[in-house]
Design a protein around this nucleic acid. Structure first.
Lengths: 340, 340
DNA sequence: TAATATTGGGTAATCGATTGCGCAATTGTG
DNA sequence: CACAATTGCGCAATCGATTACCCAATATTA
């Protein structure tokens, strides 16, 4: 078992002090070029690595930030994390990732643990089941920047980066209207959640702004499964006046709808245009490729990271920033009537 | 700006020493119950959090492990990471994740950085473009367990957890044979890579073991894109004797093939059975759902984590373990001729 | 009751790197 | 040639928690 080499080992070999070694390694002008060379050479020879723990303890800067998400193996979240890393790694920060599994208790544990680990910030997409915020208040009390992304809680002093669901739904609906669709249906998931409320509201607003009537029969619920999409589509198609377009609040619903429509011999997009939400990777592989509202996970991650950097760099001044990102509608064949 | 509270702050408030506080917090029997209560109460009152950096520096244990993957937002890798976390978090380890973007230089930087961070192990899926191994040797020289998963390099002293590609391909091909397919084609990606060589070998072996002739015309290359899958399928179907089954070395190829076959009016699985590889999430949503070889990312992550734990717990004894996981064939409609 | 245990906690070193201050040797100035 | 400035590096404290070792006060035992 070799022990790790420290600056003291280097110092001893060269008959100088650790202080000199430290200065040499940090290219301090007070050290002669000659000594620097010797130190560097010896450091390489002994395979020296700076101990970041000691540095962090001394400086009070760990250069670590904590990122907390419900699940790491969901495309959206892993893409957000990628965005965060791309922004923060070049600045010398490392990212510690944890997942809550949508469990409030676990979330609390994780936050405590990150605080213990002296992270310099916590970026978190709050668990769906989190009802309390004491753990977040603790973070703020320690003066550590806390940033919510995608999912937020109302709490003073916390910045957030979220998506404009209303806007995304509005764009999708408007696009369908522009395609000449006259009877646009909407599939929603769980109206207890704010994001789905907002998507519904955006859908309604777009209809209204274009002088189209809102028909409650055209709004059907669905669970987050593909079969649910089929069922919902059936319900819509069995209406006296079936819709000629469907805007689904998620992509699986859109896919299910497409599969059902194909089964009953409808053509897409000729007979019915379809738009989904989330722009999951699979949407572009479908036949036809499915239009979908992109939640721009990468920009969201980068933005969250930037908000953190701003806060760090504005010593003293407390910033509370709420960034709402505009979604982008990815238009594909499933909603494109006039060729292209 | 409040400063973080330390055990010294607690000690001062209670007119005792930091040593006593430390012992009280660690439930040392030499401290009276009364004092412990006082300390605990004051710790809570001052919102004290143990500084893990100081602890790590003192104890030499950071409780961090580094996980390195090419990309974090790829389903396979994020699932492996999830497996690692599920195994390691309960043991008190935190995971630091980095991505190489398949860049050797970046990989080297990352490894150096993890060493600086005093991680207790590095679990890595080697970048596709890594040609050197000096950075890995450095890890070993520091006596830090190094574990390859999914993608490995030949290097003594390193444990690895990989997938048995040969076996996966064999199973897929055998399954197609059992379905009564007589002319089974294979789509491959890049035969420069070991995994694809092994998949081809497994395919060949299965044919041979069942007395079926290997026909080079039935092996076509494809890029990792859906259109490539279509092209490859066209090539196969234009043969004098088109195949009645296709085993693709990836899922996008399988999907492209299905789309092309549908276009030319072939029925799946009646006219042609299809099996993919990787079991990407989208395969189960397709019409028909696509059979695919699952690479069991979660078990791979858990296994890699376990190998690390074993190594940690076997002080002194050096372990070099190579675990090869058996893939699981997920059989779905695209290759199931006789109903179900 | 004197001697010995036990209880409860203080002292100070340690982990590795950084840095303000001090000081000797060398160089420069008048 | 005497004094000042510069160069180059050592000393020792510091970050926060742990722990081997030591010691006083009380409790136990013969």
């Amino acid at each position: 078992m070799k022990k790790k080499t420290t600056i003291y080992d280097i110092a001893k070999e060269l008959n100088i002090t650790a202080a000199t070694v430290s200065r040499a390694l940090n290219n301090n002008p007070r050290i002669s070029e000659e000594t620097k060379k010797l130190v560097l050479a010896m450091a390489a020879k002994l395979n020296y690595k700076q101990n970041k723990l000691a540095l962090a303890l001394k400086s009070g800067k760990s250069n670590n930030v904590g990122v907390v998400v419900p699940f790491i193996n969901r495309n959206f979240f892993s893409s957000v994390i990628r965005g965060i890393e791309e922004e923060l790694n070049p600045k010398g920060y490392n990212v510690i990732i944890s997942q809550t599994h949508e469990d409030e208790k676990k979330e609390i544990d994780i936050v405590q643990n990150l605080l213990n680990s002296q992270v310099e910030s916590i970026l978190i997409s709050v668990s769906r089941n989190t009802r309390t915020n004491e753990h977040f208040k603790q973070v703020l009390r320690k003066n550590i920047p806390l940033i919510f992304f995608d999912r937020k809680l109302e709490l003073g002093g916390v910045s957030s980066v979220t998506l404009d669901d209303f806007q995304g739904a509005y764009q999708a609906t408007e696009h369908l209207i522009e395609q000449g669709c006259k009877h646009i249906a909407h599939m929603t998931i769980d109206l207890a959640l704010l994001i789905y409320q907002n998507r519904l509201a955006g859908y309604k607003q777009a209809l209204e702004d274009h002088g189209m009537e809102f028909n409650p029969d055209y709004v059907v619920g669905l669970k987050s499964e593909i079969v649910a999409g089929k069922d919902a589509a059936k319900k819509l198609m069995d209406l006296p006046k079936p819709p000629d377009a469907i805007f689904s609040a998620n992509d699986l619903g859109a896919l299910g709808a497409i599969q059902y429509l194909k089964e009953i011999g409808k053509k897409i997009p000729e007979d019915c245009c379809i738009v989904g939400f989330s722009n999951e990777p699979f949407t572009q592989f479908m036949e036809p490729p499915i239009s979908s509202v992109d939640q721009s996970p990468l920009p969201m991650g980068k933005t969250a990271a930037k908000v953190f950097l701003e806060q760090i760099n504005s010593k003293g001044v407390k910033i509370e920033k709420s960034v709402v990102l505009d979604p982008t509608l990815e238009i594909r064949k499933s909603s494109l009537k006039n060729g292209k």
